[in-house]
């Protein structure tokens, strides 16, 4: 297990270095001079040189890369072209909003997907199974941001039950947070839930047809025991994998929904930074989200190696 964990961590570090190369290269492919663009009408030769020097853009490219990686590992991601604030601070301010939205969405996804998937699998071929399959197919195909807009039309504009947008930190006002997070989290969570439902159904079906489940039934165990102890438990490895993948996706997949609901998270920040051509913030946000994505993926790998020891032995 230790060797597996170290190997997985080593792989993550290599990929993370690759991520820094991609992010660094992308931002250096920007046509024109980003410093000139950032200064806009406030351009003076002095301010240009000052910002260019502060951003490290006056050094050779390779030196800029190593400086960028070195600084990034110490938490220094440069300063925002737009506000002059340290990018790390800006990102940390926005991170809780994204994490809380992603967490709420994941809860909704798992709470709906798990029972539906297990139910559909254990009632394979029946009308209820067909309904679950159709609904999950619809869920996979619906754009989450459109679902969000429909929720606003229904629950805010028509019924007036929920605020259409905005954010209150969970720690300050849990009820206010809940009333604002429920629509974006449900829009994203139902789409993720549809994907997970299909996967849970497949995994449980496969486990139901396995020899250990047949043996358990042949021993005369009650159906409920067979399902809970032998079928669902053995289906958990692939299910945890897909839940982990979905959780990782949600970190960077809530950009559009954050724009729809004016949710001040990393997605909204990235969108605003792209619109304002604030490249240090875009670079920092992309790097942070990719890092979170990698960390969640690694955590999932370690978790399922823990659940199924065969994985770490392989």
């Amino acid at each position: 297990m230790l060797r597996f964990s170290l190997a997985r961590a080593g792989h993550a570090v290599v990929v993370l270095l690759g991520v820094t190369v991609v992010v660094f290269t992308l931002m250096h492919l920007v046509p024109g001079d980003p410093v000139r663009v950032a200064l806009g009408t406030q351009y003076t030769p002095e301010s240009y040189e000052a910002l260019r020097s502060a951003s490290g853009l006056d050094r050779p490219l390779i030196s800029q890369y190593f400086h960028y990686v070195g600084s990034a590992f110490t938490g220094d991601l440069g300063v925002s072209f737009r506000t002059g604030e340290p990018v790390t601070l800006v990102l940390l301010e926005r991170l809780p909003a994204t994490l809380s939205l992603a967490f709420a969405a994941m809860v909704i996804a798992v709470v709906t997907a798990f029972p539906l998937g297990v139910y559909a699998a254990t009632h394979q071929g029946r009308i209820s199974d067909t309904i679950v399959r159709v609904v999950s197919q619809f869920g996979v195909s619906v754009p989450d941001f459109w679902l969000g807009i429909l929720f606003i039309l229904l629950f805010s504009s028509t019924l007036g039950w929920l605020p259409p947008s905005g954010y209150v930190p969970l720690t300050e006002d849990p009820v206010g947070w809940l009333s604002r997070v429920i629509m974006p989290a449900t829009a994203v969570g139902l789409v993720s839930g549809a994907i997970i439902t299909r996967f849970v159904r497949s995994a449980v079906l496969e486990s139901l047809g396995s020899e250990h489940a047949r043996t358990a039934r042949a021993k005369g165990l009650r159906r409920r025991i067979v399902r809970s102890r032998h079928v669902v438990r053995n289906a958990m490895v692939p299910i945890i994998t897909v839940i982990g993948v979905q959780a990782a996706i949600l970190m960077g997949g809530v950009i559009v929904i954050e724009v729809v609901f004016a949710w001040p998270g990393l997605g909204r920040l990235t969108f605003d930074a792209v619109s304002a051509r604030d490249y240090p913030v875009v670079q920092g946000a992309v790097l942070l989200v990719a890092t979170l994505f990698l960390l969640v993926s690694m955590a999932v790998d370690l978790l399922y190696a823990r659940i199924d020891p065969r994985i770490s032995i392989r």
Partner: peptide, 20 residues
């Protein structure tokens, strides 16, 4: 593996941000 480390929409947005 590196490209897979980026959520698809985020990478697409970053590329469009660069290219216009």
């Amino acid at each position: 593996d590196v490209v897979f480390a980026f959520p698809i929409m985020l990478l697409a947005i970053a590329i469009v941000a660069v290219l216009g």
